[in-house]
């Protein structure tokens, strides 16, 4: 479904994303994790067309979409959400989700029905008439998800939809994401919350300082010394293995 090869993007002298290869097979939930500043969001932005990559290629559903405008990418069926939520603050939840739904529905009644269906699916059925600007953090995260989902995407790029949520809310969103996948949508998710990724993703890629340092199943990733060091600092893996405890 998604094939990223050698994706590179530098800001000034800093290579935020440096030769990233990434594959997302159709129907999968794939995780992209890494410590703060690892380049996850830039990687997403470069895939979805929000920043032009300096090098590398992005193929989506067999077509080359490298450096294409975000709306072109979205219409092709690859839609991202934002880590820092970007609600249409003065519009209602219904109107927000309808903006997504309008992409595939030409008539108002259809767009409205589709928006309400999606809102219910992500648990926002009771909030349809609320102003998006009045939502809680958890509500805004759900709204990001609902709007993107309303465009009927084939691949969803979810950027930290669980950050800032309490454990109950995380558990709810995990359920929602899983049901979205079961509805036939492929998912690539960035997550800082390791536990969420481990419970959701079948395949995990670990990004550190712009490079992929490990990939594999969640179980293999948590045990990988390189990953532990990336998160906890140099030498941490050895200390942990030596029985120091912690974590």
């Amino acid at each position: 479904m998604l094939e990223v090869r050698g994706l590179t993007r530098a800001f000034g002298g800093l290579k935020a994303v440096d030769g990233v290869d990434l594959d997302v097979p159709e129907g999968a939930i794939v995780g992209l994790i890494g410590p703060n500043g690892a380049g996850k969001t830039t990687c997403f932005a470069a895939i979805a067309g929000f920043v032009k990559p300096d090098a590398g290629s992005v193929r989506f559903a067999g077509a080359d979409v490298t450096g294409r405008e975000p709306h072109v990418v979205a219409r092709a069926g690859m839609v991202r959400t934002f880590q820092i939520t970007q609600p249409f603050a003065r519009l209602s939840v219904r109107e927000n989700v309808m903006v997504g739904a309008w992409l595939r529905h030409a008539r108002r009644a259809e767009a409205e029905a589709a928006a309400e269906r999606v809102a219910r699916a992500v648990g926002m059925g009771a909030m349809l008439d609320m102003r998006a600007g009045d939502l809680t953090v958890a509500g805004r995260k759900r709204l990001e998800l609902a709007r993107a989902l309303a465009t009927s995407p084939r691949l969803l790029l979810l950027d930290e939809v669980m950050a800032g949520l309490n454990p109950t809310e995380v558990a709810e969103i995990v359920g929602v994401v899983r049901s979205i996948r079961d509805g036939g949508v492929t998912i690539l998710l960035i997550e800082h919350v390791m536990q969420a990724v481990v419970s959701l993703a079948e395949q995990v890629h670990v990004l550190n300082q712009g490079r992929i340092i490990a990939r594999g199943t969640p179980a293999a990733i948590v045990a990988d010394p390189a990953v532990v060091e990336a998160y906890l600092g140099h030498g941490a893996a050895a200390r942990l293995a030596g029985g120091g405890g912690g974590g």
Partner: peptide, 10 residues
């Protein structure tokens, strides 16, 4: 309301 979000939604 938000140009980036608009672009992301096609």
């Amino acid at each position: 309301e938000n140009e980036d979000a608009a672009r992301a939604l096609g």
